[in-house]
Every structure is written in C-alpha cells, then in structure tokens.
Amino acid sequence: MVELVSVAAVSENGVIGDDGELPWPSIPADKRQYRDRVAGETVILGRKTFESMLDDLPGAAQIVVSRSRSSVDTDTAHAVAGVEEAVAVAESLGAETAYVLGGGAIYELFQPHLDRMVLSRVHGEYDGDTRYPEWNTDEWTLSDSTEHDRFTLETWVRVGES
C-alpha cells in the first residue's frame, strides 16, 4: 500500500495561498527542504497547482487529480479522477510514498486518507483565499518538530500508523 503524505506550507492562521500564490515572502530554506523531499518521488496535485508548476515540475511523476483528463500533456504526468485512482496509479508506478502537494481542494479530498503530514508552519498570520484543512488532533501525533528561520517543520503521523 502506498503511504500518502501531505506536504504544505501553512501560516499560523491556516492560510496556504492567495490567488494561486504564497501569501508570504519567499522562504528559501523551506523551498529547498520541500524540493529535496519530493525530488525523484511520485507527487499528487490538482490541475491548477500542476499548471502553475509546469515550468519546474516537482517529483519524478505527477498524478494530476482533474475532472478534465485532456488537461495533462506532459510525459511524466497521469490524469486521474479521484483518490482511489490516484493511489492505483501510484502503486502501478512502484511508489512506496506519494506526496500530496495541493491545492486546497486536493488537501481536503485526501485528508481522510493521509498517513503522514509534513507541514512547514510559517511564522505569522497572512490573508489568503485558500486554507489547509483542519484535522482532528486526536487522530494525529506530532512525531517531529524542527525550528528554522521563519518556519517550523512539523511531521504528523496518524495515530495507529507506524
């Protein structure tokens, strides 16, 4: 079974985006750890997020959740309709882990299925139109927390997962 891991940068008030952009000034250390984490891996993302990253696609294979299958025209990308199909494609690619990269609706869709969350908790509150979904803290354990300049990197593991 593929491990599903959500990766997101989230402000203190839960905001992750504003009109398709990050609402805070660039944090190079966070971008670096994010890129290093997903490099060579299978990633799952929504069509808008995929299209916003076309010039510099993350991961070795992209699974694009979209209602419009014709929207994906890249050799490494696979269009799927939902969670089950995304997991099936990740398994067919031999992935042990698939990283869920957003946007907001995709995080919401995958939240009940996640095994882990790796969250860059950006210091400060920001205005934005997209939020990371709330989760029941009784179902999750904070397994690691590392302080960085302007963000704290947290790893959350679903209770009952190894």
Results as ranks from 00 to 15, higher is better:
V2C: 04
V2P: 03
E3S: 07
V5I: 08
V5E: 09
V5Q: 01
V7E: 07
V7A: 07
A9C: 07
N13H: 14
V15Y: 14
I16W: 08
G17F: 07
G17E: 13
G17C: 05
D19L: 12
G20V: 11
L22H: 03
P23R: 05
P25Q: 08
S26C: 09
I27C: 05
P28W: 08
A29C: 01
D30H: 09
D30G: 05
D30L: 10
K31G: 11
Q33P: 00
Q33D: 07
Y34P: 00
A39S: 15
T42N: 10
T42W: 13
V43A: 07
L45R: 03
G46D: 06
K48R: 13
K48D: 05
F50C: 03
F50P: 07
F50M: 03
E51A: 04
M53I: 00
L54A: 12
D55A: 15
D55F: 03
D55W: 01
D55Q: 06
D56R: 09
P58Y: 06
P58D: 06
G59I: 08
G59R: 11
Q62S: 14
V65Y: 10
V65F: 11
S68E: 15
R69W: 08
R69G: 00
S70Q: 14
V72W: 05
D75M: 12
D75C: 06
T76W: 04
T76C: 11
H78Y: 15
V80C: 09
V80W: 00
A81C: 13
V83N: 08
E84Y: 00
E84W: 00
E84K: 05
E84G: 15
V87H: 01
A88D: 15
V89R: 13
S92V: 02
L93Q: 10
L93V: 06
G94W: 02
T97H: 10
A98P: 02
Y99D: 01
V100I: 15
L101H: 04
L101T: 02
G102R: 02
G102V: 05
G102M: 01
I106Q: 01
Y107I: 10
E108V: 00
F110C: 04
P112F: 01
P112Q: 03
P112V: 03
H113C: 01
R116S: 02
M117R: 11
S120K: 04
R121C: 14
H123V: 12
G124P: 07
E125C: 09
E125Y: 09
D127M: 08
D129I: 05
T130V: 13
R131A: 14
R131F: 12
Y132W: 06
P133D: 09
P133C: 06
T137I: 09
T137E: 12
T137Y: 00
D138H: 09
E139I: 02
E139C: 08
W140A: 07
W140N: 08
T141A: 15
T141M: 10
L142G: 06
L142P: 09
S143T: 15
S143K: 10
D144Q: 15
S145N: 02
S145K: 13
S145W: 11
S145R: 15
T146S: 11
T146P: 07
T146N: 08
H148Y: 15
D149W: 03
D149K: 11
D149Q: 14
R150I: 00
T152P: 08
T152I: 13
T152N: 05
E154V: 13
T155M: 14
R158A: 04
V159W: 04
V159C: 11
G160S: 04
E161N: 14
